[in-house]
């Protein structure tokens, strides 16, 4: 119980203008310094759940959250669904980073990409920025490739490098949790391998939730796995259990490829 970084309690979510909820009473724990994978067929609500965890849904009006999503950060418990002010949401997003399916480098230099979030957070000191940019790039395993061209545009990098840059950008803020939404599905196998290695490395410092389409990826990478289906959380357990000995027939059918 004490080793949670986040948990959802009877969490339901309904998109604006839609009658039926897309997520129904989800109870999902997220363990600290572990990798939790979310799997399930397309449209089952994985992204919707992930995007609730940093309240990015708030970018679009009139979506409805119900239940609780508790964040256990800095020894405090906080229901992030209670946050109202923009400043509180900004603080939440500094604690809960997010990586998207397609790499999203900003149209600026590699250095500025990594420094951007810190500058938003009010870090002005140049030597602190320099140090944290270097550290973040090292932690994201692209320091060697980028150290001689920090001032060139990030748009000139390959897709895999851009994705690692996006990870570095999030890591630089020292978040408690990082959310990955199918981070490798737009990448080639070699870049995918590099990202997976990186994610496994990152869990020393940060808790990770990863949505993936790829069952091998979930089993290779994660400690815990949540299987979702049509807006319900069907089963959550240790990854080994989910893949070797699932409780639910539905889970077994899915991981053995009988549907999905």
């Amino acid at each position: 119980m004490t080793n949670l970084i986040m948990e959802t309690k009877d969490f339901s979510f309904t998109y604006a203008g839609v009658d039926a909820p897309s997520l129904k009473k989800i109870n999902l724990p997220i363990e600290k310094n572990r990798i939790t994978a979310m799997i399930g067929p397309s449209g089952c609500g994985k992204s919707t759940l992930l995007r609730a965890m940093n309240r990015i849904h708030d970018l679009y009006p009139n979506n409805k959250y119900e239940g609780e999503i508790n964040l256990y950060s800095n020894g405090k418990k906080e229901n992030i669904l209670d946050l109202k002010k923009e400043n509180d949401l900004i603080r939440l997003r500094q604690d809960v980073g997010m990586i998207f399916q397609k790499p999203t480098p900003f149209p600026m230099s590699i250095y500025d990409n990594v420094a951007y979030g810190m500058r938003l957070a009010g870090v002005k000191n140049q030597s602190e920025l320099d140090g944290r940019v270097e550290k973040a790039l090292q932690d994201s395993a692209i320091w060697k490739e980028t150290k001689d061209r920090l001032n060139t545009s990030a748009l000139g990098m390959s897709g895999g490098q851009q994705q690692r840059l996006c990870i570095a950008r999030a890591v630089a803020l020292k978040p408690d949790i990082m959310l990955f939404d199918e981070p490798t599905s737009a990448l080639d196998p070699i870049s995918t391998g590099a990202i997976e290695e990186l994610i496994a490395e990152l869990k020393k410092d940060v808790s990770i939730v990863i949505v993936t389409h790829n069952m091998q990826q979930a089993s290779r990478l994660s400690d815990y796995t949540a299987f979702m289906y049509l807006g319900d959380l069907i089963e959550y357990d240790k990854t080994d259990t989910i893949f070797m000995n699932p409780n639910e027939k539905l889970t077994e059918d899915y991981i053995t490829g009988r549907f999905g």
């Binding site: 970018l59 923009e86 997003r93 980073g97 999203t104 900003f106 149209p107 951007y116 979030g117 996006c166």
Partner: peptide
């Protein structure tokens, strides 16, 4: 792409900063 806006917001930007700067 809307992902660029979301990426900015996800890094702790306010909406107007992301629009004006990115």
């Amino acid at each position: 792409p809307k992902e660029l806006r979301e990426a900015g917001i996800a890094l702790g930007g306010s909406k107007h900063k992301i629009i004006m700067q990115i």
